[in-house]
Write a protein that binds this DNA or RNA. Structure first.
Lengths: 210, 210
DNA sequence: ACAGCCATGTAACTTGTTACATGATTTT
DNA sequence: AAAATCATGTAACAAGTTACATGGCTGT
């Protein structure tokens, strides 16, 4: 959701051809996340389909310039003005994974946590070792690159903090032991009773079929 | 990339039918991120296509149980054992957006930053106000839910920290003023000259075609 | 001639996501 | 009867990503 919008924002500055867009994007976001060339042409076609850009004729060099439309310009402005909202619950792969792992009986969540922590720490070290680019210090590219790098560092630090918290929490719940009784109640169709206290289980714990 | 794997990990505990999987998943990750039912059936079909699960016959209740295969079991184990690796550069939408915004001439990055900061702060406040679920404290569900919630809080805090850093950095680079000269050099095809010092610009700064 | 980059494009595929259709069952 | 829930499924789409095909130009 940011490639599309980023390309649009760059195109809002003036027509570009595909390879140029790649260059501009990479320059702005640093050498991380090298943007695949093919993706640019895909994205441009999708943008054209949505009426946000228009494709021009090839010039004498064979360069195909793309021009933003009024709708595209509005969309770019909208994107820049509106804050990025994380969904009510952003899908954090790591959190989901640990939440699932911590509630599976045969799984040793503590070990998973430790090995994840090692990997995350290593990643953070790498990020910290990553040099600022050899560009002219103070250049806009340098600024942009620093922002992206800082963002990654902050995220990695937060991940480590969270992992430590999680480890402490897990220590309090030594053994999940939450066997897969799954839905403790027998699955029933239809509208469930509201007032009745679910009639108590007593019955079969879902008897996983062989 | 976590729905698919999570469902597989749950199925590794024993056969389930679709609705049951949704229940299990939601129970483990908290009420955030309610999993759309349709997605489960899609994912199951894709898992079957990949030979990781097998669909069973409907039982007397009309429940279609899905059973994990040996390959699926191996895949689930692999997922649980391997740490989640953020790509060399994870696509942080917010970072990319700010990096792009900070290098666009007509754009007031400081304003964008401030409004983003407000939104992020508000989100963090909401997260902090989010109560732990009314479940039995100490239950595995409670643990899982807390983990997810903590993760979101940590991420939100990191985001704010980063935004503050970014604001400070932007203050040092008061006005990007990086006009869209785009590729300062005239785009040329073929292998670029290595030794020549790019022949100096002098010429037209890409002369954006009208 | 050959390597290698510039440049455009096509096709396929993955995961996530939503909208919709269908029907059974059960409470109100 | 109506409403709500359980349950299964289909179809389509969005965004990202990769692999591949094609050709031009240029330096060695």
């Amino acid at each position: 959701m940011s490639v599309r919008q980023s390309l649009l924002a760059i195109l809002d500055q003036g027509p570009c051809y595909g390879y140029q867009l790649r260059h501009e994007f990479d320059r702005r976001t640093g050498s991380t996340w090298p943007l695949n060339v093919g993706q640019i042409y895909n994205t441009l076609e999708r943008l054209e389909r949505d009426g946000l850009v228009q494709r021009g004729e090839a010039d004498e060099h064979g360069h195909v310039y793309w021009r933003i439309t009024a709708a595209g310009s509005a969309e770019a402005a909208r994107w820049l003005a509106a804050p990025v909202l994380r969904a009510p619950a952003t899908r954090e792969e790591l959190a989901v994974k640990l939440a699932v792992a911590a509630t599976l009986p045969g799984v040793d969540a503590a070990t998973i946590l430790r090995s994840q922590r090692d990997a995350s720490q290593q990643r953070l070290d790498e990020l910290r070792r990553t040099p600022s680019p050899g560009l002219a210090a103070g250049s806009p590219e340098d600024l942009a690159w620093s922002l992206v790098l800082d963002s990654l560092v902050c995220a990695a630090e937060a991940e480590l903090r969270w992992l430590d918290q999680a480890e402490a929490r897990l220590a309090q719940h030594p053994h999940p032991e939450m066997a897969l009784e799954l839905t403790t109640e027998r699955p029933k169709r239809g509208r469930p009773a509201k007032t009745l206290p679910s009639a108590v289980a007593g019955g079969d714990p879902v008897a996983v079929p062989a």
